[in-house]
Amino acid sequence: MAIDDAFIQAFRLHQQQGDLFHPPGREDQAIHQASTIGALMEGVYDGEITYAELARLGDFGLGTFNALDGEMIAYDGRFFQMKSDGKAYPVDPAAKTPFAVVMFFDPTVKVLWEEQVGWKQFQQSVDKAVPSRNIFYAIKVKARFDHIRVRTVPRQNKPYPPLVEVAKHQPEFTFEDVEGTLVGFRFPDYAQGLNVAGYHVHFLAADLASGGHVLDFSMQDARIDIDVTSKFHMEVPECGDFLAADLGKDQSEDIHAAEN
């Protein structure tokens, strides 16, 4: 069976049972987001929400830190900061974030996939299987990676440059023959500017020592869990640089450049 068919079969099973959104005994969990990716693109790198506050809204997700000090990944209630040295560190609950996305992860769709699959093929396979591209998908993957290429953003100093400029100088790392976990989301196209349309995924190695924002990979022996939700809550800053930022322009090209 091709990986496309495996995903289609898994989604159809829950659609036929009528429990894709509301399995027995499970409440549909909302995605909670602090600020917007558009604000981050404009150099709004300081927020007021702490990770202690964020953890009350979800145990799974991704984001960044004030001053754009690295990438965040969270799963199973544990939060990690992946800095520009490529290493991962436990998050200080008092640390603050200008942008983060979290939820309480409770997957409906589960797929086991032993064969090798690449990042682009993985995205295409999920795209073919999802019942609608207009709702939200949280994705967690535990796998063995033949290779995985990631980047992390370095801490910035004021006056902050826009993210597309930071991305030109971001350090990249490639890890080979490593086990680890992917955490990410698939957002609808209409969410571009609020978040990243399509896939936004972070990686943490199984030894909890390294990781970053995913650029490419080849993986096998994967356990893929997907949580489907129609609920999305967002809170934006009420003060600071966010209020003056120009968020009305089309940022699609810059978002693509910065995220890929």
Rank of each mutant, 00 (worst) to 15 (best):
M72P: 06
G61Y: 00
P107V: 10
G70P: 00
V44P: 01
A74W: 04
P93S: 07
T97R: 04
L57Y: 05
F105W: 06
T64I: 05
A67I: 14
F104M: 12
Q81S: 13
M72T: 14
P90N: 10
A100R: 02
E71V: 07
T108S: 10
A67S: 14
Y51E: 00
I73F: 02
L54A: 07
K96T: 14
P93V: 09
V44C: 07
P98W: 02
L40T: 06
G70L: 01
A95D: 09
F79H: 11
V91K: 00
T64N: 04
Y75P: 06
T97K: 06
V44Y: 03
P107M: 13
F60T: 02
D46T: 13
F99A: 11
G70I: 00
M41I: 08
F65Q: 01
F105V: 05
L54F: 06
R56I: 15
K96D: 10
A94G: 12
L40Q: 05
L57F: 08
L54S: 04
A74C: 15
A39R: 01
K83G: 11
K96A: 12
K83C: 10
G43E: 03
F60K: 01
D46C: 15
A74V: 10
E71N: 07
G77H: 12
P98I: 03
D46K: 13
E48N: 11
Y45N: 02
Y89K: 09
T108E: 07
Y51L: 07
A67F: 15
A52T: 12
G47N: 03
G77P: 05
F80H: 08
A55E: 15
I49W: 06
A88F: 04
A74F: 06
G63S: 08
G43T: 05
S84Y: 08
G61V: 02
G86C: 04
E71M: 07
K87E: 07
D69L: 04
P98V: 04
V44I: 09
A100L: 08
L62D: 08
Y89R: 09
M72C: 12
M72Y: 13
G77V: 09
A88C: 09
L62I: 14
Y89E: 09
D76E: 15
E42W: 08
G61T: 03
A55C: 14
A55M: 11
A39K: 00
D69F: 02
Y45L: 08
A94N: 14
I73N: 03
E48Y: 14
A100C: 15
Y51H: 04
G77Q: 09
G63I: 02
M103Q: 09
K96E: 15
F65R: 01
V44D: 05
A95K: 11
A55H: 07
Y75F: 12
L68R: 01
P90F: 05
A100W: 00
I73W: 01
E42P: 04
Y45I: 06
G47W: 00
T64A: 05
A88K: 01
D76R: 14
P90H: 11
G63Q: 03
F80D: 03
G47D: 02
K83E: 11
M41F: 04
G77K: 11
D85I: 13
Y75D: 11
D46E: 15
M41C: 13
T50L: 07
A100D: 01
D69K: 07
